[in-house]
Amino acid sequence: MIERLGALIIDGVISLGAFVFFLLGSVFYVLVPPYKPRLLIRQVRIIGADSLFLIILIGGFTGMVLGLQGYNTLRRFGSDGALGTVVALVLVRELGPVLAALMIAARAGSAMAAELGSMQSTEQIDALTVMAINPVQYLVSPRMLAGVISFPLLTSIFDVVGIYGGYMIGVGLMGAPSGAYFNGIASNMSGHDIMTGLYKALVFGVIVMWVSCYKGYNAERMATGVSRATTEAVVLSSVLILAFDYFLTSILL
């Protein structure tokens, strides 16, 4: 029993070490030549451009719900003029980075884990190694950098679309004062609020790429290996996004 527990703990520590070294390795190889801008651009397209429609869709609906709920709540206190401020702050500081990250983890992160897992199981990663091409530098580092570039941009788009979604419902449908919506945002939202959201997006970008690439890269070479890697990538990314959101909020508040 104790032997089993000890083995379990040792395995856990080894896995955690491998997980952390994987991140350090991929960051290191971002900085070391040869640089592959072609691979980076491709990954920015896959993570960023290809996720755009989903981000606009989810951002729009999130803003619309906030507009609806916010208007009904604020009206009870006679504060419907603060609707714009509430929608914008909630989106920019909290929901924008978190929901955008969860969406990208589900779309791009899962695809990434599946792709790398499939490459692992069909020995394509070994083939890179045998060709004297570092697979982490070739496959993981461009994805990591692309995540760092794409996440803040997608989050910004999510925020802007969400604010307009809130305006459409809160002002256009429910009748909140039009001028106060954007004036409230302009006067009450600070640069710190915006930076808080962007810092979060940056960290979430690293988390999603790190977890997804790690799970795919280390997928077991069996029929269920890829599906397990994909599931674990999405679940672990989502949990870490929410956990880090709390810690980041505590630090950045």
């Binding site: 069909t122 020995e123 394509q124 070994d126 083939a127 190694t129 045998v130 004297a132 570092n134």
Partner: peptide, 23 residues
């Protein structure tokens, strides 16, 4: 080390069991 191994790898080609072609 890695650099030395890469230099040796330049000398050989490898055919994997399933081909390992990039899809």
């Amino acid at each position: 080390g890695t650099i030395g191994m890469d230099a040796v790898r330049e000398k050989f080609g490898m055919l994997f069991q399933a081909g390992a072609l990039f899809d």
